[in-house]
Design a binder for these strands. Structure first.
Lengths: 131, 131
DNA sequence: TCTATTTAGGCATTATAGTACCTAAATAAA
DNA sequence: TTTATTTAGGTACTATAATGCCTAAATAGA
């Protein structure tokens, strides 16, 4: 069981974009990336549709086609990718969306908020140019 | 979107056991706890079936029934509860269960492992007696 | 004994993520 | 121009987690 919350989709997005960034300016195909990551080609294709719509990559169809980064690798953080795949992160509120808490001092306040902030800052700091 | 991985079930287990611990030796009912936590009574009842089987609570049926802790609050950590609800945690491996990694140094090694270890130690440290 | 309360357990329903499939569009190469 | 390749997008299927519902069992109290 995984302690951090990262779907297969977000995992694929982060890892495949890192590979795309590494091989710039060469285009990479979904087929190639799926083999490289030992992942489902169908799922990865869906992920890249999302990444394309979100403006992270440019696509070229046909033979010798594939994906390249649309923005410089320095300008794409893991947080950007995470939010594109999983939706926007909202820190500062109860991580479970509760408006009412049975505890005067939430039993999670001290620790869970610290950890959430840590993950947030970590994702924000890591950039595709780091690979 | 929540950065840490904690299901509604695990959230309910941690919070309701904290309330049970606080009100010892009085028994608490699922109905009471559901109101207190503003949560689904049906779901909480399921959670307590799991907690009962896992040996965290003793149950008494019928009027004036409810749940009490079976073990001292000092001996129950959030990690114990988490694992009872979500399954055993395995640190030290790829958090996504991959045996093959496309990166010589996994892009997550430094940070994700640090954060996972942090969450693990935090859950391990927090005990029901802390409330 | 009877009734109301409360947990136990099984089953059904719902939501979501993941996967698969099919067709269209684009394009490089033969 | 034709063919093979590859992304785009829609739809549908599957698996699993989460949630809800119903009935049985237990038990305190009237």
């Amino acid at each position: 069981m995984n302690l951090i919350n990262l779907s297969e989709g977000a995992y694929l997005a982060m890892h495949s974009l890192a590979l795309v960034a590494k091989s710039q300016p060469e285009r990479l195909t979904v087929k190639h990336l799926a083999e490289e990551l030992d992942a489902s080609q169908a799922h990865l294709a869906k992920v890249f549709q999302t990444l394309h719509k979100a403006g992270f990559v440019d696509s070229v169809r046909g033979p010798a086609g594939g994906f390249i980064l649309k923005k410089p690798a320095e300008e794409i953080s893991f947080l950007d990718i995470y939010e594109a795949m999983e939706g926007p992160v909202n820190l500062g509120h109860c991580p479970f969306g509760k408006t009412k808490c049975a505890f005067h001092n939430c039993i999670f306040t001290k620790d869970i908020h610290r950890i959430s902030a840590d993950i947030y800052q970590t994702y924000k700091r890591i950039r595709l140019s780091d690979f």
